[in-house]
Protein backbone atom coordinates (compact mmCIF):
# COMPACT_ATOMS: atom_id res chain seq x y z
CA UNK A 1 0.00 0.00 0.00
CA UNK A 2 1.41 3.37 -0.90
CA UNK A 3 0.73 6.47 1.08
CA UNK A 4 -0.82 9.42 -0.67
CA UNK A 5 1.98 11.46 -2.15
CA UNK A 6 2.87 14.52 -0.17
CA UNK A 7 0.55 13.82 2.71
CA UNK A 8 2.25 10.91 4.36
CA UNK A 9 2.85 11.69 8.00
CA UNK A 10 2.79 15.40 7.26
CA UNK A 11 1.12 15.89 10.64
CA UNK A 12 4.42 14.92 12.18
CA UNK A 13 6.13 17.96 10.72
CA UNK A 14 5.95 21.29 12.43
CA UNK A 15 3.35 23.46 10.70
CA UNK A 16 4.42 27.01 9.72
CA UNK A 17 2.61 28.64 12.65
CA UNK A 18 4.32 26.13 14.94
CA UNK A 19 7.67 27.21 13.58
CA UNK A 20 6.83 30.76 14.50
CA UNK A 21 5.86 29.60 17.97
CA UNK A 22 9.17 27.81 18.28
CA UNK A 23 10.91 30.97 17.21
CA UNK A 24 9.20 32.99 19.94
CA UNK A 25 9.97 30.30 22.44
CA UNK A 26 13.61 30.48 21.55
CA UNK A 27 13.59 34.26 21.76
CA UNK A 28 12.06 34.18 25.24
CA UNK A 29 14.48 31.48 26.30
CA UNK A 30 17.36 33.57 25.00
CA UNK A 31 16.09 36.59 26.87
CA UNK A 32 15.96 34.73 30.17
CA UNK A 33 19.53 33.61 29.67
CA UNK A 34 20.50 37.17 28.84
CA UNK A 35 18.78 38.42 32.00
CA UNK A 36 20.65 35.88 34.08
CA UNK A 37 23.94 37.00 32.54
CA UNK A 38 23.06 40.67 33.11
CA UNK A 39 22.38 39.93 36.76
CA UNK A 40 25.40 37.71 37.27
CA UNK A 41 27.96 39.89 35.54
CA UNK A 42 28.06 42.73 38.08
CA UNK A 43 28.13 40.22 40.92
CA UNK A 44 31.10 38.45 39.43
CA UNK A 45 32.83 41.73 38.58
CA UNK A 46 32.28 43.17 42.05
CA UNK A 47 33.39 40.00 43.78
CA UNK A 48 36.39 39.71 41.48
CA UNK A 49 37.32 43.32 42.05
CA UNK A 50 37.06 42.98 45.81
CA UNK A 51 39.24 39.90 45.74
CA UNK A 52 41.84 41.53 43.48
CA UNK A 53 42.09 44.70 45.52
CA UNK A 54 41.73 43.16 48.93
CA UNK A 55 43.71 39.97 48.69
CA UNK A 56 47.04 41.70 49.28
CA UNK A 57 45.74 42.95 52.65
CA UNK A 58 44.76 39.49 53.80
CA UNK A 59 47.62 38.30 55.92
CA UNK A 60 47.66 36.09 58.95
CA UNK A 61 48.22 39.18 61.04
CA UNK A 62 45.25 40.96 59.47
CA UNK A 63 42.96 38.09 60.28
CA UNK A 64 44.19 37.02 63.69
CA UNK A 65 45.49 40.04 65.52
CA UNK A 66 44.09 43.15 67.06
CA UNK A 67 44.54 46.65 65.60
CA UNK A 68 47.63 48.76 66.20
CA UNK A 69 48.09 52.48 65.63
CA UNK A 70 44.36 53.18 65.35
CA UNK A 71 43.83 50.31 62.98
CA UNK A 72 46.29 51.44 60.37
CA UNK A 73 48.35 48.40 61.25
CA UNK A 74 47.72 45.07 62.87
CA UNK A 75 44.50 43.19 62.17
CA UNK A 76 40.76 43.08 62.59
CA UNK A 77 40.43 39.94 64.69
CA UNK A 78 38.21 41.59 67.35
CA UNK A 79 35.88 42.86 64.63
CA UNK A 80 35.58 39.40 63.12
CA UNK A 81 34.85 37.77 66.45
CA UNK A 82 32.38 40.40 67.59
CA UNK A 83 30.63 40.33 64.21
CA UNK A 84 30.22 36.63 64.79
CA UNK A 85 28.77 37.25 68.25
CA UNK A 86 26.47 39.91 66.91
CA UNK A 87 25.08 37.73 64.14
CA UNK A 88 24.72 34.66 66.34
CA UNK A 89 22.82 36.74 68.84
CA UNK A 90 20.60 38.04 66.06
CA UNK A 91 19.82 34.44 65.13
CA UNK A 92 19.19 33.48 68.75
CA UNK A 93 16.84 36.38 69.27
CA UNK A 94 15.05 36.54 65.94
CA UNK A 95 14.64 32.92 64.88
CA UNK A 96 12.60 31.51 67.80
CA UNK A 97 10.31 34.52 67.92
CA UNK A 98 10.11 34.83 64.16
CA UNK A 99 9.34 31.18 63.47
CA UNK A 100 7.05 31.04 66.51
CA UNK A 101 5.00 33.99 65.30
CA UNK A 102 4.89 32.60 61.79
CA UNK A 103 3.56 29.29 63.12
CA UNK A 104 0.93 31.11 65.14
CA UNK A 105 -0.09 33.34 62.28
CA UNK A 106 -0.33 30.60 59.67
CA UNK A 107 -1.54 27.67 61.77
CA UNK A 108 -3.50 28.96 64.70
CA UNK A 109 -4.69 32.53 64.24
CA UNK A 110 -8.29 32.86 63.17
CA UNK A 111 -8.48 34.16 59.60
CA UNK A 112 -10.19 37.51 59.38
CA UNK A 113 -9.66 41.20 59.02
CA UNK A 114 -7.39 41.45 62.06
CA UNK A 115 -5.10 38.70 60.80
CA UNK A 116 -4.90 40.30 57.37
CA UNK A 117 -4.00 43.60 58.98
CA UNK A 118 -1.30 41.98 61.09
CA UNK A 119 0.18 40.19 58.10
CA UNK A 120 0.19 43.36 56.06
CA UNK A 121 1.87 45.23 58.88
CA UNK A 122 4.61 42.63 59.15
CA UNK A 123 5.24 42.65 55.42
CA UNK A 124 5.51 46.42 55.56
CA UNK A 125 7.83 46.23 58.54
CA UNK A 126 10.17 44.07 56.47
CA UNK A 127 10.44 46.96 54.04
CA UNK A 128 11.04 49.74 56.56
CA UNK A 129 14.46 51.41 55.99
CA UNK A 130 17.01 50.06 58.39
CA UNK A 131 17.89 53.48 59.80
CA UNK A 132 14.39 53.64 61.23
CA UNK A 133 15.09 50.43 63.12
CA UNK A 134 18.27 52.05 64.34
CA UNK A 135 16.37 55.05 65.66
CA UNK A 136 13.81 52.81 67.27
CA UNK A 137 16.54 50.64 68.81
CA UNK A 138 18.27 53.68 70.25
CA UNK A 139 15.03 55.07 71.64
CA UNK A 140 13.79 51.79 73.02
CA UNK A 141 16.84 49.91 74.26
CA UNK A 142 18.97 52.89 75.25
CA UNK A 143 16.53 55.57 76.35
CA UNK A 144 13.51 53.64 77.56
CA UNK A 145 15.17 50.49 78.88
CA UNK A 146 18.24 52.47 79.88
CA UNK A 147 20.68 50.00 78.38
CA UNK A 148 24.35 50.72 77.77
CA UNK A 149 25.63 51.05 74.23
CA UNK A 150 26.74 47.44 74.18
CA UNK A 151 26.87 44.68 71.64
CA UNK A 152 23.55 43.11 72.56
CA UNK A 153 21.75 46.36 71.80
CA UNK A 154 23.14 46.27 68.27
CA UNK A 155 22.05 42.65 67.96
CA UNK A 156 18.60 43.38 69.33
CA UNK A 157 18.14 46.24 66.89
CA UNK A 158 19.25 44.12 63.95
CA UNK A 159 17.07 41.27 65.23
CA UNK A 160 13.99 43.48 65.05
CA UNK A 161 14.57 44.01 61.40
CA UNK A 162 15.43 40.36 60.82
CA UNK A 163 12.26 39.36 62.63
CA UNK A 164 10.02 40.94 60.06
CA UNK A 165 11.83 39.22 57.20
CA UNK A 166 11.86 35.86 58.99
CA UNK A 167 8.16 35.97 59.88
CA UNK A 168 7.16 36.87 56.35
CA UNK A 169 9.19 34.17 54.66
CA UNK A 170 8.48 31.49 57.28
CA UNK A 171 4.76 32.17 57.01
CA UNK A 172 4.93 31.78 53.24
CA UNK A 173 6.71 28.45 53.46
CA UNK A 174 4.36 27.14 56.16
CA UNK A 175 1.38 28.08 54.03
CA UNK A 176 2.85 26.25 51.08
CA UNK A 177 2.76 22.92 52.92
CA UNK A 178 -0.14 21.05 51.37
CA UNK A 179 -3.37 20.65 53.27
CA UNK A 180 -3.35 16.98 52.38
CA UNK A 181 -0.50 15.87 54.61
CA UNK A 182 -1.67 18.01 57.52
CA UNK A 183 -5.12 16.49 57.30
CA UNK A 184 -3.57 13.06 56.95
CA UNK A 185 -1.84 13.50 60.27
CA UNK A 186 -4.80 15.10 62.03
CA UNK A 187 -7.07 12.34 60.79
CA UNK A 188 -4.88 9.81 62.59
CA UNK A 189 -5.75 11.47 65.87
CA UNK A 190 -2.43 13.29 66.11
CA UNK A 191 -2.91 16.63 67.82
CA UNK A 192 -2.59 19.89 65.96
CA UNK A 193 0.54 20.83 67.90
CA UNK A 194 2.27 17.57 67.04
CA UNK A 195 1.16 17.82 63.46
CA UNK A 196 2.69 21.27 63.29
CA UNK A 197 5.91 20.03 64.83
CA UNK A 198 6.38 16.74 63.05
CA UNK A 199 4.73 17.33 59.68
CA UNK A 200 4.31 20.98 58.83
CA UNK A 201 7.50 22.48 60.23
CA UNK A 202 9.85 19.85 58.77
CA UNK A 203 8.23 20.37 55.38
CA UNK A 204 8.59 24.12 55.63
CA UNK A 205 12.10 24.03 57.02
CA UNK A 206 14.05 24.61 53.80
CA UNK A 207 12.00 27.71 53.08
CA UNK A 208 12.36 28.93 56.63
CA UNK A 209 16.13 28.49 56.48
CA UNK A 210 16.29 30.48 53.28
CA UNK A 211 14.40 33.31 54.95
CA UNK A 212 16.63 33.26 58.01
CA UNK A 213 19.67 33.32 55.80
CA UNK A 214 18.38 36.28 53.86
CA UNK A 215 17.68 38.15 57.06
CA UNK A 216 21.10 37.40 58.55
CA UNK A 217 22.98 38.32 55.40
CA UNK A 218 21.14 41.59 55.42
CA UNK A 219 21.91 42.18 59.09
CA UNK A 220 25.57 41.51 58.40
CA UNK A 221 25.66 44.32 55.89
CA UNK A 222 23.83 47.01 57.85
CA UNK A 223 25.72 50.14 58.78
CA UNK A 224 23.25 52.94 59.53
CA UNK A 225 21.37 51.29 62.39
CA UNK A 226 24.48 49.94 64.08
CA UNK A 227 26.02 53.40 64.13
CA UNK A 228 22.94 54.81 65.82
CA UNK A 229 23.06 52.22 68.58
CA UNK A 230 26.76 52.59 69.14
CA UNK A 231 29.05 50.36 67.11
CA UNK A 232 32.70 51.36 67.21
CA UNK A 233 35.79 50.89 65.06
CA UNK A 234 38.31 48.13 65.67
CA UNK A 235 39.64 48.16 69.20
CA UNK A 236 41.40 45.62 71.40
CA UNK A 237 38.95 44.29 73.93
CA UNK A 238 38.35 41.09 75.81
CA UNK A 239 36.74 38.67 73.40
CA UNK A 240 35.18 36.10 75.68
CA UNK A 241 31.42 35.83 75.29
CA UNK A 242 30.74 38.24 78.13
CA UNK A 243 31.76 40.91 75.62
CA UNK A 244 28.17 40.69 74.42
CA UNK A 245 27.14 42.65 77.49
CA UNK A 246 30.34 44.37 78.52
CA UNK A 247 31.71 45.66 75.24
CA UNK A 248 30.49 47.86 72.48
CA UNK A 249 29.87 46.21 69.17
CA UNK A 250 32.51 46.08 66.46
CA UNK A 251 31.06 44.87 63.20
CA UNK A 252 32.66 44.44 59.79
CA UNK A 253 30.06 46.53 58.02
CA UNK A 254 30.69 49.54 60.21
CA UNK A 255 34.44 48.92 60.22
CA UNK A 256 34.37 49.20 56.45
CA UNK A 257 32.10 52.23 56.41
CA UNK A 258 34.10 53.95 59.11
CA UNK A 259 37.42 53.39 57.38
CA UNK A 260 36.09 54.63 54.07
CA UNK A 261 34.66 57.83 55.51
CA UNK A 262 37.62 58.36 57.80
CA UNK A 263 39.62 58.51 54.59
CA UNK A 264 43.15 59.75 54.86
CA UNK A 265 45.79 57.69 56.46
CA UNK A 266 44.03 54.35 56.24
CA UNK A 267 45.69 52.07 53.71
CA UNK A 268 43.48 51.53 50.67
CA UNK A 269 44.06 47.80 50.37
CA UNK A 270 42.99 47.28 53.98
CA UNK A 271 39.54 48.67 53.14
CA UNK A 272 39.25 46.12 50.37
CA UNK A 273 40.53 43.53 52.78
CA UNK A 274 37.67 44.27 55.19
CA UNK A 275 35.19 44.08 52.32
CA UNK A 276 36.62 40.74 51.34
CA UNK A 277 36.28 39.40 54.88
CA UNK A 278 32.70 40.65 55.04
CA UNK A 279 31.86 38.98 51.75
CA UNK A 280 33.43 35.77 53.00
CA UNK A 281 31.42 35.84 56.22
CA UNK A 282 28.18 36.24 54.27
CA UNK A 283 29.30 33.50 51.89
CA UNK A 284 30.00 31.16 54.80
CA UNK A 285 26.53 31.84 56.16
CA UNK A 286 25.02 31.09 52.76
CA UNK A 287 26.98 27.92 52.28
CA UNK A 288 26.19 26.57 55.72
CA UNK A 289 22.50 27.21 55.11
CA UNK A 290 22.75 25.38 51.79
CA UNK A 291 24.46 22.52 53.55
CA UNK A 292 21.76 22.46 56.21
CA UNK A 293 19.04 22.37 53.58
CA UNK A 294 20.78 19.54 51.85
CA UNK A 295 21.14 17.59 55.10
CA UNK A 296 17.48 18.05 55.86
CA UNK A 297 16.37 16.82 52.48
CA UNK A 298 18.59 13.77 53.01
CA UNK A 299 17.08 13.06 56.40
CA UNK A 300 13.60 13.64 55.08
CA UNK A 301 13.85 11.09 52.32
CA UNK A 302 15.68 8.36 54.17
CA UNK A 303 14.82 8.24 57.80
CA UNK A 304 13.86 10.49 60.64
CA UNK A 305 13.64 8.80 63.99
Amino acid sequence: MSALPGTSSSWLRTPPEGKRKNFYQNVVFGLTILATIVVLTPIVIVAGYVVREGLSAITLEFLTEGPRRDGAEGGIWPVIVLTGYTLILVVVMAVPFGVGSAVFLSEYARPGRLLRLINLTIINLAGVPSIVYGLFGAAFFLDILGGEKSLWVVSATLALQALAIIITSARESLLSVTRGIREGSLALGVSKLRTTFFITLPQALPGIITGVLLAISRAAGETAPVIVVGAILAKNVSLNPSAVINERAQVLSFELYGRITEGIGYPEERKWGIALVLLTVVLIFNLSALFLRWRISQLGSVRRN
Binding site: T178, I181, E183, A187, G189, G300, S301
Partner: peptide
Amino acid sequence: VQLRRHVGMVFQKPNPFPM
Protein backbone atom coordinates in the same frame (compact mmCIF):
# COMPACT_ATOMS: atom_id res chain seq x y z
CA VAL B 1 -8.31 14.45 68.56
CA GLN B 2 -9.24 11.31 70.52
CA LEU B 3 -12.26 10.79 68.30
CA ARG B 4 -10.10 10.75 65.17
CA ARG B 5 -8.11 7.82 66.52
CA HIS B 6 -11.27 5.79 66.55
CA VAL B 7 -12.66 7.14 63.33
CA GLY B 8 -9.89 7.05 60.73
CA MET B 9 -10.01 8.72 57.35
CA VAL B 10 -8.65 8.03 53.88
CA PHE B 11 -8.67 10.91 51.45
CA GLN B 12 -9.48 11.30 47.79
CA LYS B 13 -5.93 12.12 46.83
CA PRO B 14 -3.34 9.78 48.32
CA ASN B 15 -1.44 11.89 50.83
CA PRO B 16 1.57 9.95 52.11
CA PHE B 17 3.82 11.90 54.44
CA PRO B 18 7.17 13.00 53.03
CA MET B 19 8.94 10.17 54.84
